[in-house]
């Protein structure tokens, strides 16, 4: 706020901002509200219950799907984050910036169904080629590389999450001064030591946020996973097929709420922890730096 700004308009603008956030969240909050109602959606009487949540944990199919989803999300994160880090480092030094940015960010601009369809046909063809080569030269281990399944779903999710992780990491790296790496090299550090000792500690919050971001995106993704997954089920595919088959059941409200709670809690914690931490560290240092307190 500027010194002569009008506090009323300033407050109104804040109010508007929070209102929009609430508006965006309102369907989710409404679903959560319904999920605690014993009588379900549209009922005249609201009776609080946790029963619908208990039902989820007895649902075998759901639990299997959840474990597949977690495996897939973590595998996605383990590959997406190193790739994005490499890409961000490459972007900083390369002269072909336009091409790099274009290639890494364009998956954002290709919608889930289009990318999913293209990858589906690509993997079906690739699988055909690999099986053919495997048959012809009897290299059996080649044969099922790109059969629809975990690998193909994983690749689809990596492509989907790389742009987000790349942007988050790149923005964090933007605040890092390259001279520090040079200083470390001048102190005798190898390129790798300079990265782990000097650069990484400073971009760590960004990398961790990117990790959480990637896991949640991969966990939540429906279309690409559904097209590329082959045999197994994930959380979203179970949820959607239940919704489409039986309509919105009370149990599906509870499942949606639960997953939303967890995602919001993770991101909320990250936001609060990383930001508070950096604040408190800065504050403690400031106290330490007060003249007199540490002066020799």
């Amino acid at each position: 706020m500027t010194e002569y700004g009008n506090p009323v308009t300033y407050g109104l603008k804040w109010l508007y901002l929070l209102l929009i956030v609430c508006l965006l969240m309102s369907p989710v909050f409404y679903v959560m509200y319904i999920s605690f109602n014993e009588n379900g959606f549209g009922a005249r009487h609201y009776v609080f219950t946790l029963d619908w949540y208990k039902v989820i944990f007895t649902d075998r199919q759901m639990l299997t799907a959840l474990s597949w989803t977690m495996k897939l999300s973590i595998a996605t994160m383990l590959i997406t984050i190193p790739l994005s880090l490499l890409a961000a480092k490459y972007y900083k030094t390369t002269r072909h910036k336009v091409l790099t940015v274009f290639l890494l960010l364009s998956p954002l601009f290709v919608s889930s169904d289009i990318m999913g369809s293209a990858l589906l046909v690509f993997f079906k063809n690739l699988n055909g080629v690999f099986t053919f080569v495997g048959d012809k030269y009897s290299i059996l281990w080649l044969q099922s590389w790109f059969e629809l399944g975990f690998t193909t779903a994983l690749i689809g999710l990596i492509i989907y999450t790389i742009p987000y992780a790349f942007i988050v990491i790149l923005i964090t790296m933007g605040r890092y001064r390259q001279q520090q790496t040079e200083a470390a090299r001048a102190c005798g550090a190898t390129g790798w030591q300079a990265f782990t000792d000097i650069e990484f500690p400073q971009i760590r919050p960004g990398v961790f946020s990117a990790c959480a971001f990637t896991i949640i995106l991969a966990f939540n993704e429906y279309t690409r996973t559904n097209l590329l997954k082959g045999g197994f089920d994930t959380f979203t595919t179970v949820l959607v097929s239940e919704m489409l088959n039986t309509g919105m059941s009370e149990q599906s409200y509870a499942m949606s709420s639960l997953v939303s709670f967890i995602a919001i809690a993770i991101i909320g914690t990250i936001i609060i922890v990383t930001l508070l931490k950096s604040d408190s560290i800065a504050q403690r240092e400031r106290v330490k730096a007060e003249p007199g307190s540490n002066e020799s």
Binding site: R177, E182, A183, A186, G188, G191, Q202
Partner: peptide, 20 residues
């Protein structure tokens, strides 16, 4: 040879201290 393999050391203009 890269910088860390040379018998030199360097002082930079500014911002080159490790802030953490």
């Amino acid at each position: 040879l890269p910088p860390d393999k040379r018998p030199t050391s360097m002082v930079f203009q500014s911002y080159a201290l490790f802030p953490h």
